[in-house]
Amino acid sequence: TGTRRLSDLRVIDLRAELRKRNVDSSGNKSVLMERLKKAIEDEGGNPDEIEITSE
């Protein structure tokens, strides 16, 4: 578990975070980053400090 910047995430991490939020996880990295950023902002979170749970 740790905090990472949105830009540091790999595509696989972006998809996992989107799936956790029940958000569409298809598309390229830039699309996924925008989608995740919006989802985090909608939750009231900070997209520059994403809580990542290692699996």
Rank of each mutant, 00 (worst) to 15 (best):
E55K: 00
L32G: 01
D48S: 09
R4T: 13
I40N: 02
V11C: 08
R21N: 01
S25G: 09
S7L: 07
I40K: 04
L6N: 01
R10A: 14
P47Y: 12
R5V: 03
I40A: 02
R4S: 11
E55Y: 00
A39Q: 12
G45N: 03
S30A: 11
L6R: 03
S25P: 11
L32M: 08
R21Q: 01
E49P: 07
K38Y: 05
L14R: 00
N46V: 10
G45W: 04
A16C: 07
L36C: 05
T1N: 00
E43N: 06
N28L: 09
E41W: 04
G44P: 05
E41G: 10
E41F: 09
D42K: 09
N22M: 10
D24F: 01
S54R: 09
L14Q: 01
T1I: 07
R5Q: 09
A39S: 06
S25M: 07
K37F: 06
I12S: 12
M33V: 14
V23A: 10
R4P: 06
E51Q: 05
K37A: 15
D48F: 03
S30G: 13
L36M: 06
E17T: 01
K37W: 06
I40T: 03
T3D: 09
I50P: 07
D48H: 04
R21D: 01
M33E: 06
E49K: 10
R15V: 14
G45S: 11
T1W: 06
L18M: 05
E51L: 11
V31F: 05
E49Q: 07
L14N: 00
K37R: 14
E43G: 08
L36W: 02
R5A: 08
A39P: 02
D48A: 11
K38W: 05
D48K: 02
K29W: 09
G45P: 05
R21E: 00
A16S: 13
N46K: 09
D13R: 02
L9W: 05
D13I: 01
V11N: 08
R21K: 02
V11W: 05
T53A: 06
K29H: 05
S30E: 14
S25R: 06
V23F: 12
G2N: 11
S26E: 09
R21P: 00
E41S: 12
A16F: 13
G45I: 05
S7A: 15
S26Y: 04
D8P: 01
T1R: 08
S30H: 07
T53W: 08
K37D: 05
E43V: 08
E43S: 09
D42A: 12
R15K: 05
V31S: 13
V23Q: 05
R4L: 13
D13H: 04
L6V: 11
N28D: 15
R21W: 01
I50G: 08
E55V: 10
I52T: 07
R5K: 15
L36Q: 02
S25Q: 12
G44D: 05
T53N: 12
G2P: 03
E43L: 03
D24G: 04
I52L: 10
A39F: 07
R15A: 08
E51P: 15
V11L: 15
R21A: 01
R10E: 11
L32F: 00
E34M: 13
G2T: 15
I40G: 02
V11I: 13
L6T: 03
L18E: 01
S25V: 09
V11G: 06
K38I: 05
G2A: 09
E41K: 12
G27R: 00
D42F: 07
K38A: 11
D24N: 13
R4W: 15
G44N: 09
R10W: 02
D42P: 04
P47T: 06
L14M: 07
P47M: 06
I52K: 13
S26P: 00
L32D: 11
G2I: 15
R5W: 04
T3Y: 15
E49H: 02
E17M: 13
T53H: 04
E51I: 07
E43Y: 01
E51R: 15
S26C: 10
V23P: 01
R15G: 01
R21C: 04
L14W: 00
L9Q: 03
T3G: 06
L32H: 00
E43M: 04
V23R: 15
I50D: 04
T53G: 12
G45D: 06
G45T: 05
R15C: 02
S26V: 14
A39K: 10
N22E: 12
T53E: 12
S25K: 02
T53R: 14
R19F: 08
N28G: 15
R5E: 09
T53C: 08
T3P: 06
K38M: 04
L32T: 01
K37V: 09
G45E: 09
L32W: 00
R4D: 05
G2R: 06
L6C: 03
R4E: 13
A16G: 14
D8Y: 01
I52H: 12
R4Y: 15
N46A: 06
L18Q: 00
G44A: 03
K29L: 08
V23W: 08
S30M: 14
G27D: 01
N22T: 06
G44E: 03
K37L: 11
D8Q: 11
L9M: 15
T1C: 10
I52S: 15
I50T: 11
R15S: 06
T1D: 00
S7M: 10
R35E: 03
V11R: 09
L6M: 06
L14V: 02
R35K: 14
S25C: 10
R19I: 13
S30Y: 07
A16I: 14
P47D: 05
T3A: 03
T53F: 07
V23Y: 09
L6K: 02
R10L: 07
V11H: 05
V31C: 12
A39V: 15
N28T: 12
D13Y: 00
V23E: 10
E43H: 06
G44M: 04
D42R: 12
E17C: 06
E55G: 13
L14A: 02
L6H: 02
E49W: 13
I50R: 08
L36P: 02
G2E: 15
D48P: 08
T1P: 02
I40D: 01
K29Q: 14
R19Q: 15
M33W: 04
R5F: 07
N28C: 13
D13W: 01
D13C: 03
E51K: 07
N22Y: 03
D8W: 02
V23T: 09
T1K: 07
E17V: 03
R15Y: 03
A39C: 15
S7V: 12
N28P: 08
E34D: 13
T1A: 08
S26M: 08
S26D: 15
K37Y: 08
K38F: 04
E55M: 06
R21L: 03
E34N: 13
L18K: 00
S54E: 08
R19G: 14
P47R: 10
S7C: 07
T1L: 03
T3W: 04
D8A: 07
G44Y: 01
S26N: 12
T3H: 04
K38D: 09
D48Q: 06
E49T: 12
L32N: 03
D8K: 04
A39E: 07
S7K: 12
N46M: 07
K20A: 15
R5M: 11
N46T: 08
T53V: 13
R10I: 02
E34Q: 11
E43Q: 08
E17G: 02
I12C: 08
K38G: 08
T53D: 08
E41N: 11
I12Q: 15
R35P: 03
T1E: 09
T3E: 09
S54M: 13
R15E: 13
D13T: 07
N46C: 11
K38T: 09
I50A: 07
G27C: 00
S30F: 10
D13F: 00
E49S: 15
S54W: 05
K20V: 00
D13L: 02
L9D: 02
R10Q: 13
